[in-house]
Computed example of a mutant assay.
Amino acid sequence: MTQNSAATTPKTSDLNSIRAIIEDVQAGFNRNDADLMNVHLAEDAIIVNARGVRLTGRPAIDEATREGLAAGFLRDATAYYQLTDIALLAPDVITAGKNAWSTQQDFEVGNPPEMNALYIFIRRSGRWLIWRRQNTLIA
């Protein structure tokens, strides 16, 4: 885990929460289940999807996710995720990187990731939520 001097390692319970969120995002994506994929988004979340489209607010993100998974370019896609660089920036703010492969086999054989993402998680009412996410496809 790479960190700068201003960041610290989150508590184990917080790390486990962040890992569980990413597991739900992965499972939702692979099952074409937009509700599971987005269950941990803050209402005021902003994301940039893999096509570079900026989506603001949970309703817009949910709609775009449903369309993409149901009949769009993501319908037949799968992904395997690995968290990297998890850092606690403030008591209620965690950043994390995420590498992604189309299959678990690509990850296991050591192929380079096909996408990476930067997440910002915030804790609200005792629960970690995805507040910002920026996806970048790797050429």
Rank of each mutant, 00 (worst) to 15 (best):
M37K: 08
M37H: 05
N38D: 11
N38C: 15
N38L: 09
N38I: 00
V39Q: 14
V39Y: 03
V39C: 11
V39I: 10
V39L: 12
H40R: 12
H40Y: 09
H40T: 10
H40W: 12
A42G: 06
A42F: 05
A42L: 01
E43V: 04
E43W: 07
E43N: 12
E43P: 01
D44T: 04
D44L: 05
D44E: 13
D44Q: 09
D44H: 07
A45G: 08
A45S: 14
A45V: 01
A45E: 07
A45W: 04
I46G: 05
I46L: 13
I46V: 15
I47D: 06
I47K: 10
I47H: 04
I47R: 07
V48Y: 05
V48W: 05
N49A: 12
N49D: 15
N49C: 09
A50Q: 13
A50G: 12
A50K: 05
R51K: 14
R51M: 06
R51Q: 13
R51Y: 09
R51A: 05
G52F: 02
G52P: 00
G52T: 10
V53I: 15
V53G: 10
V53S: 14
V53N: 14
V53T: 15
R54N: 08
R54G: 07
R54F: 08
R54Y: 06
R54H: 10
L55T: 00
L55C: 02
L55F: 04
L55A: 01
L55Q: 01
T56N: 13
T56Y: 08
T56V: 15
G57M: 11
G57Q: 07
R58D: 03
R58N: 06
R58L: 03
R58E: 01
R58K: 14
R58V: 01
P59T: 06
P59Y: 11
P59R: 07
P59A: 10
A60R: 04
A60G: 03
A60P: 04
A60H: 07
A60F: 04
A60T: 02
A60I: 00
I61W: 03
I61V: 14
D62F: 02
D62M: 13
E63K: 07
E63I: 05
A64S: 15
A64P: 10
T65E: 09
T65L: 00
T65I: 04
R66P: 09
R66F: 03
R66M: 04
R66T: 02
R66Q: 11
R66I: 00
R66H: 11
E67Y: 00
E67A: 08
E67D: 15
G68K: 05
G68E: 12
G68H: 12
G68W: 11
L69G: 06
L69R: 00
L69S: 08
L69I: 08
L69P: 02
L69H: 02
L69A: 10
A70P: 03
A70E: 12
A71C: 11
A71I: 14
A71H: 15
